[in-house]
Every structure is written in structure tokens, then in C-alpha cells.
């Protein structure tokens, strides 16, 4: 087990290193881009050259990459041109907001999707199963950018129950959090629920569940003790990998609701060509993806005694 953990951690580090190299090559291989991004399009060539020398961009690529990486690791992520402030500071604030959003997203998504999926999978072919399946397939067909519009039309414009933006100008407000969380969950729960259903249906059809029934165990016990645990392995792995997906969804939803979060920050950095900010944001997403993927892998092994090796 310890070997597997170490191997997985090493793989995670390697992935992050490779991603950082990729990003560096993409954005900073040509120093001219950096200067352009930092000084803006109205700077002269002479200004840019001076800036480059002053900031050590005349050194060889390898040295520059190592320095860049070193700065990155110690949290020195440079200054944002758009926000006129250290990148780390801005990212910190924005990330916190999105973390709150993400927490409530998962807090709603997990019970909803696993519950519906398990119910449907337990009684395959019943009307409940079919109703859940239809609900899931329809909701997953409404992309976040459409669902934000549609639910705003209902709850904001028609019913006037909820605010249409979530900029949280006057401090944090749960009322403003409801719409973004709803939009994200609406698109996503169907997918997880369908995977859970398939997994549950598969487990319910296994020999060992049948064997448990034929040993005369009560239905409740068969489902709770024998089926559920094995059925939830696949959705668990998927939920972990979902952090990665969440970032994509968060970008759309935060943009729509003007939520000052990490997702809209990525978009602003990219549209505003704020290089250091974009680099930092991307590395953070890669970091999160790599970590959650590692957790998913290790969790899969931990949940699956067959995968464990001494």
C-alpha cells in the first residue's frame, strides 16, 4: 500500500512539473510576449527591451524556467497588471469565494445524485427508474450557459425571488449564492446519478448479491451492506475527478452571475491578457486536478480490497 501511495505521489509531482514546463514554453519561451503583457500594447520596443533586461529575461531559457518554477513554488507569483496588485493576493481572495461555491455545490450534488442513482439502480425498469432517467437525461442536455439563463428567467425575472447577480458587493450573501449553485447542480447531478444507477444496477445483478439474497438476508441488509458499498466505488472516483470539471462550469456560472470567484478570474486574466495572473490560475487548476486525481486513484484502491497489494 505504501509503495502504491508513493508511486502515485511521484506521478502527481511529475504531472505537475510537466504541466508547468508546458505552460512556461507556451507563455514565456519568447520573452517578448512577457514584456508586451506586462507593459501593455502601447509600450515602445525600447521600453520592453529595458524591462526584459531589468527583470532577468536575457538569461538562458533553462535558467529562466528554473527561476520561474522556484518563484512559483515559494508563492511569489508576480504582479497582476489588471488589478495592480500581487497575483497571490488576488487569487487568494477569489479562490476563497469559489471554495464556498464549490462546497455548497458538492454538499447538494452528492446526496442528490447518489440518492437518485441508487434508487433508480435498485429497481431497474420500474416507473421510478424511468422517471429518474428521463429527468437526468433532460437536465444534462441543458448546458450551464443555458440553464443560468433559464433559471434566471424563472426565479429572477418572473418570480422575483432571487437576485440576478451574485457580485456580493455588500459582503457575503447566501441569497446570492443560491442561483450559481443551482445552475451548477442542475447540469451535473444527472450525469453522476446515471453513473450511480448503472453501477448500482450492475452490482445488484452480481452473483454475490444474489448469493446474499439466497442466504435469506433481508432486502435492507442486502442493499445496505452488500450492494451499496461496492456500487459507490465508481461514483466516488468520478466525484473526485469532478473537481476538474467543476472549474469549467464555474467559469460560465461566475461569468453570468458576475460572481467574484476564481473562474471569472481565469476568464478576466485571459481576456485582459494578464500573463502572470493567467499562469498562476492555470497552475492552481492543474494542482487541484492532479491532487484530486491522486485522491481518486488512492481512494479507489482503498475502497477496493482487490486492488491492494502488500
Amino acid at each position: 500500500m505504501a509503495r502504491q501511495v508513493l508511486r502515485r505521489l511521484a506521478l502527481m509531482l511529475a504531472t505537475m512539473l510537466a504541466a508547468s514546463l508546458l505552460l512556461f514554453l507556451l507563455f514565456e519561451l519568447l520573452p517578448g510576449n512577457v514584456a508586451l503583457s506586462e507593459l501593455g500594447p502601447y509600450s515602445t520596443q525600447e521600453q520592453r527591451d529595458l524591462w526584459l533586461v531589468a527583470n532577468g529575461y536575457d538569461r538562458p531559457v533553462v535558467i529562466r524556467y528554473l527561476l520561474w518554477l522556484g518563484h512559483f513554488v515559494i508563492g511569489d507569483w508576480g504582479n497582476s497588471r489588471l488589478f495592480m496588485a500581487p497575483v497571490a493576493q488576488i487569487v487568494g481572495v477569489r479562490f476563497e469565494n469559489t471554495a464556498v461555491l464549490g462546497f455548497w455545490f458538492f454538499a447538494l450534488l452528492v446526496p442528490l445524485s447518489l440518492g437518485l442513482g441508487t434508487l433508480a439502480g435498485m429497481r431497474q425498469g420500474s416507473w421510478l427508474d424511468r422517471a429518474i432517467s428521463v429527468l437526468c437525461i433532460v437536465t444534462t442536455s441543458i448546458p450551464p450557459f443555458a440553464s443560468t439563463v433559464l433559471i434566471s428567467a424563472i426565479f429572477v425575472f418572473s418570480l422575483h425571488w432571487l437576485p440576478g447577480t451574485s457580485s456580493m458587493m455588500d459582503g457575503f450573501s447566501y441569497r446570492q449564492l443560491i442561483m450559481p449553485v443551482m445552475a451548477l447542480v442542475l447540469y451535473d447531478f444527472g450525469y453522476i446519478a446515471r453513473i450511480t444507477r448503472a453501477s448500482m444496477a450492475e452490482v445488484m445483478a452480481t452473483q454475490y448479491v444474489r448469493a446474499a439474497v439466497l442466504r435469506g438476508l433481508p432486502q435492507r441488509r442486502v442493499v445496505l451492506r452488500h450492494a451499496l458499498r461496492n456500487a459507490l466505488i465508481a461514483p466516488f472516483t468520478l466525484l473526485m475527478l469532478h473537481v476538474n470539471w467543476l472549474i469549467s462550469g464555474v467559469i460560465v456560472v461566475e461569468y453570468f452571475f458576475a460572481f467574484k470567484g476564481f473562474g471569472s478570474l481565469i476568464l478576466e486574466a485571459s481576456l485582459g491578457k494578464d500573463l502572470y495572473l493567467l499562469e498562476a490560475c492555470t497552475m492552481i487548476t492543474v494542482f487541484m486536478a492532479a491532487v484530486t486525481q491522486t485522491i481518486a486513484d488512492l481512494g479507489y484502491v482503498a475502497l477496493n480490497p482487490r486492488m491492494r497489494r502488500a
Partner: peptide, 20 residues
């Protein structure tokens, strides 16, 4: 390994980087 690397980027972030 290449697959792992690409999958470490959220899809939309990848699009945004490429298109920007």
C-alpha cells in the same frame, strides 16, 4: 502519461488558453 498531463487541465481552461 501525455493523456494524464492533458487531463490535468480543466477542459475550459485549456480552451481559454489556446484561444486567447
Amino acid at each position: 502519461r501525455i493523456t494524464d498531463l492533458v487531463l490535468a487541465f480543466p477542459a475550459l481552461v485549456l480552451y481559454i488558453i489556446i484561444i486567447s
